[in-house]
Structure formats: structure tokens, C-alpha cells
């Protein structure tokens, strides 16, 4: 490797060069005083810059940095933010308890279904007539109840016969 080929590799950070480049550069530096001097200069500049940056950073007070950043984020942007209004709290509750919400919605429906089925079962075969209402303007009405159903008679007599 010649100086022109080694120049771009000078000042590389540790691990930045692949093993072949690293070996070629090391071989060149061991034989070239000029490149070794430039390498030393660049390392010195890097150290100065690093120290300077750290020093500058140390002058700043980052005590409230994290709190300041968090304070500037709107509450609505937080996925887990505490809801403010009652509707928002309800929505948040339902979002967190989906199964409970669906079960709450279905509970009255299932209760109505159970009641409907129960009524349907209890009103199966029963008495032949459940309710009879007869109105007649000027004739006497008589209702005879039989096992097959009611017989409604009208007539002048009180027994309709």
C-alpha cells in the first residue's frame, strides 16, 4: 500500500476497517513516517474534539430535560394516558374490558330470550280456554266449558237452550 491508498484510511475508528485494510494500513504505517505522523495528528484532533464536546455537554444542565420533553407531549397522544371526561373514561373502560362490555350488552338479551322460552314452555297444552268474554245487546249469553273448548249459546232463556 502506498501513501495515496493509506490516506483515506487514516483516522479510522476502531473496527471501522475490515481486517485486510487494517493489515495493509498497519504494514504501511510501520514503514512510512509521514503517514504515521498524520495518523498521530488525526488521533490528537479527535481526542481534543471528544474532550471538548464532553466538556460542552457537561456545562448544560439536563436535570429537567426528560421531564420537559414529556411535558410537551399532549396527553391525548399517550396510549395509556389517563382519560379526562366521563365519556372518555367509559370508552377507555370498555376498550380495556371488551368481553365484559359485550357480556353486559348481551345479558338483557339473553334474559329476554330465557323468559320468552320459559313462557313458551309454560303455555303449552293447558286448559281448553284461557279467557272468554261475551257481550250481547239483548240476548242472554251462556258459556259452557267442555274439555274440547267452550260452547257459547245465546237466546231468550237464561240457559240459552
Amino acid at each position: 500500500m502506498k501513501c495515496a491508498g493509506a490516506a483515506p484510511l487514516l483516522g479510522s475508528r476502531p473496527g471501522e476497517l475490515d481486517p485486510v485494510e487494517d493489515a495493509l494500513l498497519s504494514a504501511h504505517l510501520s514503514t512510512c513516517d509521514g503517514c504515521r505522523a498524520r495518523q498521530a495528528d488525526q488521533e490528537a484532533v479527535a481526542r481534543v474534539l471528544e474532550d471538548g464536546l464532553l466538556l460542552e455537554a457537561a456545562r448544560r444542565d439536563f436535570t429537567g430535560f426528560a421531564d420537559g420533553v414529556l411535558a410537551r407531549i399532549p396527553a391525548s397522544a399517550w396510549r395509556g394516558a389517563a382519560p379526562t371526561g366521563p365519556m372518555e373514561r367509559l370508552r377507555e373502560f370498555l376498550r380495556r374490558h371488551r368481553i365484559l362490555a359485550v357480556a353486559s350488552a348481551l345479558a338483557p338479551a339473553l334474559a329476554a330470550l330465557a323468559l320468552y322460552l320459559y313462557i313458551g314452555q309454560t303455555t303449552g297444552p293447558g286448559p281448553s280456554e284461557l279467557a272468554i268474554e261475551v257481550t250481547s245487546e239483548d240476548l242472554a249469553a251462556v258459556v259452557l266449558e267442555t274439555s274440547d273448548g267452550p260452547v257459547i249459546l245465546v237466546g231468550e232463556g237464561s240457559d240459552g237452550t
Binding site: P125, S128, E129, A131, I132, V134, T135, S136, G149
Partner: peptide, 9 residues
Amino acid sequence: RTQSRVTVA
């Protein structure tokens, strides 16, 4: 002139 309302099974 008679009207009835009867519920039966």
C-alpha cells in the same frame, strides 16, 4: 248482536 272474544289452546 253478540260479540265474543275467546282464547283457546
